[in-house]
C-alpha cells in the first residue's frame, strides 16, 4: 500500500491540473483533487476535502498539499475530523513541486513521514544550493565526513531528461545523505527536484554535469551514472 495524496485548492482546474501532472510520474499513487466550491466557484470545500482524504487512504496514510492559506485551514480541519488524525498530515510545500516530490516518494514506497518530508524539501534549485551549503558547513565543522564528487555524462536515451527519467533520477537518490545537482548549459538544479530536472530541457545527445556533496556523494553519482548508462530502462 502506498501513501496517498490530496491536493486542496481554491480552484477546481488548478487541483485537477496538479493531479494530472503528478499522475504521469506516479501512476500507482492515489492522488485526489479537492478544488473549488460545490457550485464550481473559487474557494475551498470542507466536505469535498474530507471525501478526497478518505478516498486517498489505503492504509498507509495521506499527505495533503494546499495552494493558499485558507486551503490549509480547511485541510487541517479535515485531518482533525478524522477518527485517527495521526494518519494524515498537511504539509507546507510549494504545490506543484511538492506534490511531484511527494508522489515520487510515495510511488517508491516511502512511509508517511518520508513522503511528507519529500514534499517539504521540494523547493527547486534554491533548495539544492542551500543543502549544498549546509553540507559544506557541516563538513567544515567536522560534523560529518563530507565528500565531493563530480562527473559528466552524455544522455543516450530517446526522451532525454523528460518526466519519467527525471522521476527515476530523483527516486534513485532516496535514502542517500548527499546534496546532488544536475546542470545543463547555464542551468543547475537539485537532482531531487523532478520539475527542476525536467526544466533543464536536456535531450538525447546532450552532456549533463553532476555534482554531489555529503557522505554518500560517491554512491549518489554511481547510481545516477548506472541509470544513465541503462538509458533509464527505456
Amino acid at each position: 500500500m502506498r501513501v496517498g495524496l490530496v491536493i486542496v485548492s481554491h480552484s477546481g482546474p488548478l487541483s485537477d491540473g496538479v493531479v494530472e501532472l503528478v499522475g504521469q510520474m506516479a501512476p500507482e499513487v492515489r492522488v485526489n483533487a479537492a478544488g473549488g466550491t460545490p457550485s464550481g466557484g473559487v474557494g475551498t470545500d470542507f466536505e469535498a476535502t474530507s471525501a478526497a482524504l478518505a478516498a486517498a487512504e489505503t492504509g498507509s496514510g495521506v499527505v495533503l498539499l494546499y495552494d493558499l492559506g485558507s486551503a490549509r485551514m480547511t485541510a487541517e480541519l479535515a485531518v482533525e475530523s478524522l477518527a485517527e488524525p495521526n494518519t494524515a498530515v498537511v504539509v507546507d510545500a510549494p504545490l506543484a513541486e511538492g506534490a511531484v516530490a511527494a508522489a515520487v516518494a510515495a510511488q517508491n514506497g516511502d512511509d508517511l513521514e518520508a513522503v511528507a518530508r519529500a514534499a517539504e524539501q521540494a523547493a527547486g534549485a534554491g533548495g539544492a544550493e542551500e543543502s549544498e551549503e549546509a553540507a559544506a558547513t557541516s563538513a567544515a565543522e567536522g560534523a560529518s565526513v563530507a565528500t565531493r564528487a563530480e562527473s559528466e555524462l552524455t544522455l543516450e536515451n530517446e526522451v532525454g531528461l523528460h518526466a519519467r527519467p527525471a522521476a527515476l533520477l530523483a527516486r534513485s537518490l532516496t535514502g542517500l545523505d548527499a546534496a546532488v545537482t544536475v546542470s545543463f548549459g547555464e542551468s543547475t538544479t537539485d537532482a531531487r527536484s523532478v520539475l527542476g530536472v525536467m526544466g533543464l530541457g536536456a535531450r538525447k545527445g546532450d552532456r549533463i554535469g553532476l555534482r554531489a556533496t555529503g557522505p554518500d556523494a560517491e554512491t549518489a553519482l554511481r547510481r545516477i551514472t548506472e541509470l544513465v548508462e541503462r538509458d533509464f530502462d527505456e
Binding site: T37, G41, G43, T44, D45, F46, E47, G69, S70, M73, T74, E76, L77
Partner: peptide
Amino acid sequence: LISSVGGAAGPLFGT
C-alpha cells in the same frame, strides 16, 4: 459554517 462558507472565514468562524 465549516461545510458551507468556502473562504477563510469558514474554518475560522467554524473553529
